[in-house]
């Protein structure tokens, strides 16, 4: 493991993945994945169930440790492979603190109020003062439209509200990159819009993001580039509109044909 700037990369590359492989036991799940996202870019990651989208996303913030390859976020890079030792808890934590992640199941801390959930990262990880962190949390709640829920507990919130709090919690770390793993898949259809509009707003503010999503229209409209994965490989990548409306590979065409034309 090494933490160093990879100098060959252009300044503007925010996320770089090089030759990443991951197996769970004998089962290969990611087979030589390389991709990059420029600063401010939004990449959507689509593909059938089990193709390795979540695993790749979790490799980006090292919740899952790749077996081989390099992951770079901003100026932090980590190499993995037989010649590299397993990174220490401290280095993993430092790396992860620069990457925000939003999960399908929200994973809010149920024993903390909304505002405490958002303050937790700044206070515990960054060592910021409580008043300072509370101000930040309230500003972020304003941003996601939930200021009046500051003192509510997560079990009093709707799914859409929970997910917006989860986004605010991730943003409180002032990450360089945000990752979304099917952030709207657990929501009732009428609540999807409120979460997507927050993501859309982040995109317009220039946040670098990777979106794993089954919302194909969203993958097309918000993302600049789209990657289609199958069986642990990147099958096709390119401008989001082109990949989704005019895919070249048979596998991509077959996958996209499952989504009604009306939805696209």
């Amino acid at each position: 493991m090494t933490t160093e700037a990879v100098r060959a990369m252009p300044e503007t590359t925010m996320i770089a993945v090089e030759h990443v492989r991951k197996s769970f036991g004998p089962v290969p799940v990611l087979k030589d994945i390389s991709l990059s996202v420029p600063k401010g870019g939004v990449l959507s990651l689509i593909g059938p169930s089990g193709s390795g989208k979540s695993t790749l996303l979790r490799c980006l913030n090292l919740l899952t440790i790749p077996c081989e390859g390099t992951i770079r976020i901003g100026s932090h890079a980590m190499r993995f492979g037989p010649d590299h030792r397993m990174p220490r808890d401290r280095d993993l934590a430092a790396f992860r603190s620069t990457v925000g992640m939003v999960f399908q199941n929200f994973n809010l801390f149920p024993h903390m109020s909304v505002v405490q959930n958002i303050m937790e990262g700044p206070v515990t990880v960054l060592g910021r003062g409580r008043d300072d962190a509370r101000d930040l949390a309230v500003r972020l709640l304003d941003k996601v439209g939930l200021r009046e829920k500051a003192d509510a507990y997560p079990d009093r919130l709707s799914g859409g509200q929970k997910q917006r709090v989860a986004i605010a919690r991730a943003l409180a770390m002032q990450p360089e990159v945000m990752l979304f793993d099917e952030a709207t898949s657990a929501l009732d259809p009428e609540l999807v819009g409120e979460v997507l509009s927050v993501v859309r707003q982040l995109a317009s503010e220039g946040m670098t993001m990777v979106l794993v999503t089954h919302e194909i229209a969203f993958a097309r409209d918000v993302a600049d580039t789209c990657v289609f994965m199958r069986d642990g490989f990147v099958v096709e990548e390119g401008p989001a509109r082109q990949i989704i409306e005019d895919p070249q590979q048979a596998a991509t065409k077959a996958f996209l044909s499952h989504f009604h034309k009306a939805a696209v």
Binding site: A93, R96, F103, E120
Partner: peptide, 19 residues
Amino acid sequence: GQWDAGRALGMRRAALMRR
């Protein structure tokens, strides 16, 4: 998921346990 959420924020093992 609770572990994932804490780790994703950059919490170290002991802090995650305690908090």
